[in-house]
Write a protein that binds this DNA or RNA. Structure first.
Lengths: 136, 136
DNA sequence: ATGCACCCTGTAGCAACTACAGGGTCAAGA
DNA sequence: TCTTGACCCTGTAGTTGCTACAGGGTGCAT
């Protein structure tokens, strides 16, 4: 299949597919006589893996390691588990951090009573950390 | 005060202060005869405002609008409230999204039973969206 | 006079794309 | 046959919000 079809089949931008090839995340496909990229099912599967992993928030380097692992079926699975677990921990950290942030923002937004900027509680709160309930 | 002192006073990297000046977020300070930047209290307050807003996740452009607003004390406060509310909504979206992601990752990580990559449930799950409980 | 901490400018790098500019290819319709 | 339009190619530069140099100048203490 051509790049446009692969793009539609995987929901990936064409430019992104070429980018993944350039950084070595996807193998170089064969070319037609017109120098068009020509992909097969293994390419589609690999790109699906990459996109799915990106959707789950894995970095390109993490995905590279996971792909290396899946290319080498005899290797121990524990590294994949380690990468995924570490990522999970990062996501949990991020959620905790955003939750604090949300609480602070809720407090700040709730202070607005209308009026002019000179008396704006939102602007005041942004300029003075002492209004905050928690460290961030 | 010199840039190093301002850096320590606000917990901002020196390079970041110069960057903010370059993009017009902070006004150009006076210079000493040796061409050193020389800051006063208004600069410190403005930088504190910027850092605090960044810590709360506002973008540079949002901060620019908020600063414009606070520079013009007669203006209506509602724009500040609008910016903050929109940002709060974005943070809430992000939390919801990350929570879905966390659940999916938890499911994936939980499937690992050790063994070799060929049978790795983590790698399998990443390659096949059908294993997922929700869209993402 | 020599070391050291500090300051300056300008440019390039990071992640993970995205968006052109400027060209080539190919099949269908007039 | 010619043309139109959809598709493809390469290469480079832009995005956000910094951070990290390289290569130099300044100021103060010893």
């Amino acid at each position: 299949m051509k790049i446009g079809e692969l793009s539609r089949a995987t929901g990936t931008n064409i430019e992104t597919i070429r980018y993944y090839e350039r950084i070595g995340l996807l193998p170089k496909p064969h070319r037609t006589v017109a120098n068009y990229r020509s992909y097969g099912d293994p390419h589609r599967a690999r790109l699906t893996f990459v996109r799915h992993s990106r959707d789950l928030g894995f970095t390109i380097e993490e995905i590279r390691s996971l792909l290396d692992l899946s290319d080498d079926p005899g290797r121990d699975c524990s590294e994949a588990d380690r990468i995924a677990s570490r990522h999970l921990a990062q996501v949990e950290d991020k959620i905790a951090q955003l939750t604090l942030l949300r609480d602070e923002l809720t407090r700040i937004v709730g202070r607005c009573r209308g009026g002019v900027a000179a008396e704006c509680r939102v602007i005041e709160a942004l300029g003075d950390h002492r209004h905050c309930a928690s460290a961030h």
